[in-house]
């Protein structure tokens, strides 16, 4: 997995910290990995109607970020979808 290889350059302490940050946010919002998978599949389904995407390397995460105007960090959904071909969308061919 690409992500894994990328993290291997980091020290194990930083790996632990980053894993925990992601894990705890999904723990706190009570969102199971299965649910994250369902969200991922649904989003992939919708986007695939318009363009060809790489579903294998797609990432869905809930992370915390400072919102504009808000004093506290709030959770937000982060989706990273690699596009394989913009023009080859199935409905464009019809």
């Amino acid at each position: 997995m690409k992500l894994h290889r990328f993290f291997q350059k980091k020290s194990s302490g930083n790996i632990a910290r980053d894993r925990l940050k992601i894990l705890l946010i999904s723990d706190r919002v009570n969102c199971s990995p299965e649910m994250m998978n369902m969200i991922k599949n649904d989003i992939a389904g919708v986007i695939s109607r318009y363009m060809k995407i790489d579903e294998e390397s797609m990432e869905v995460q809930i992370t915390k970020k400072n919102n504009k105007g808000a004093a506290r960090k709030s959770p937000f959904l982060y989706v990273n979808i690699p596009i394989l071909d913009l023009s080859s969308a199935p409905h464009n061919k019809i």
Binding site: S11, S12, G13, A16, R17, L20, K21, L24
Partner: peptide, 17 residues
């Protein structure tokens, strides 16, 4: 010693989390 080597989360990391 482990924190210094980067192989343990620092107290700042734990407080941040």
């Amino acid at each position: 010693d482990l924190v210094k080597r980067g192989d343990m989360m620092s107290s700042a990391d734990v407080v941040d989390i």
